[in-house]
Amino acid sequence: MKSLTDQMEKKVKIKMFKPKFIGLLSCSGEDFPGGSISRVATRKVLTEFLPGMTTAICVPLFLNGNEQETKFVKNFPCITIDGCEKACVKKSLEAMGKKPVESINLSEFFSKDEYKQIMSGPIHDLDWNDNPLTLKLAEHIAILSAKHLKEMNMI
């Protein structure tokens, strides 16, 4: 009987430590539109596509060594979204010995024409809100997030 209780407690503990979220780490790219579209698409996943199942990590805060952000990144699966080939976000995660479960780079995800269109586009976030390319990126992030959430039996 005691061992059954122990087993149940163990199961509960395992369940408690099961990751509930996918962390999304997006490029912020203040000086170019690749950052804006990455950011807007990530916010769309967070608030419209998979609300309550994904969380956004503030990259500069995490780089500053903020305890809460660092703890999350260490313990939860993360997807990185990079706006250009410099791949700052992916590199920042790898620098702390963590491999993202998925990494998206806009320069590879979009076709050459689409990427060119993005990079020569507006920089303001609002200009990207309803853009089809933003939706395309957001859907891709959501699909990858859903795939991992499913693997974790979260959906």
Binding site: S28, G29, E30, D31, G35, V59, L63, C88, S92
Partner: peptide
């Protein structure tokens, strides 16, 4: 000029 904060990583 705008500077990108994340780029301070690399």
């Amino acid at each position: 000029r705008l500077l990108c904060l994340s780029r301070f990583v690399v």
